[in-house]
Simulated scan of single mutants.
Amino acid sequence: MTAYDRSVVIIVPAAIREQVIALAAALGFSTRLGAPLSPTGTGTPTHYGTHTRALQVFVDLLTGEVPAAEGFDPADVAALRAQMIVSVRPVSEMTDSAHFQNELAANGLMRIGGQS
């Protein structure tokens, strides 16, 4: 059995959300970045976020050497990654919800609609 032993929070500015979704697809992963976020928890989203449990290979794509992705120039991938907030912790450290909420608080963001 494969261990999804990493808790991963990803937060991106709204302006690059679609590009990050396309990049994830080009790398063979799927994400919706479905949680709308803003500094006040109201209004138009300034950011979008997601939480997942992941394998180390996924974490390496987010934090290691810039990966090759079909249809993406490496410099463009690096520029997208530079704008992303990525937090990785062992799943044993805290609950998924607490990890997401901690990252929102650390970055001055709230989920629109108050959902956790």
Rank of each mutant, 00 (worst) to 15 (best):
P13E: 11
A54Y: 05
Y4P: 00
A106G: 08
S87I: 00
A24V: 01
G41V: 10
V66K: 03
A14E: 15
N107H: 15
E18Y: 08
S97V: 11
M1P: 12
E70G: 07
T46S: 15
V91Y: 04
V57W: 08
S7A: 15
P13A: 11
A54H: 05
H47W: 06
N102C: 05
Q83V: 05
V86L: 06
T52V: 06
G71K: 11
I10H: 02
E70F: 03
E65D: 14
P36I: 06
A26I: 04
L23D: 05
S92Q: 13
T50N: 02
A68K: 13
A3Y: 09
G114P: 04
E70K: 14
R6D: 12
A15Y: 01
A82G: 05
P67N: 12
H51L: 04
F58G: 12
G113H: 08
D76H: 08
G114Y: 03
I21G: 01
R53K: 12
G49I: 09
L33P: 07
P90N: 15
A25K: 14
L109F: 04
G108I: 11
T50V: 07
F29P: 00
D96G: 13
D60K: 14
M110D: 06
G49Q: 08
A26R: 13
A54C: 05
R6I: 04
D76I: 01
N102V: 00
A14R: 13
T31F: 00
L62T: 07
P39A: 12
Q19I: 02
T95N: 00
G114S: 13
A22R: 15
M110S: 13
A98V: 06
E65C: 02
G108S: 12
Q19F: 03
T2S: 12
S87C: 04
N107C: 02
N107G: 05
Y48I: 07
V66A: 06
P67W: 12
P45T: 11
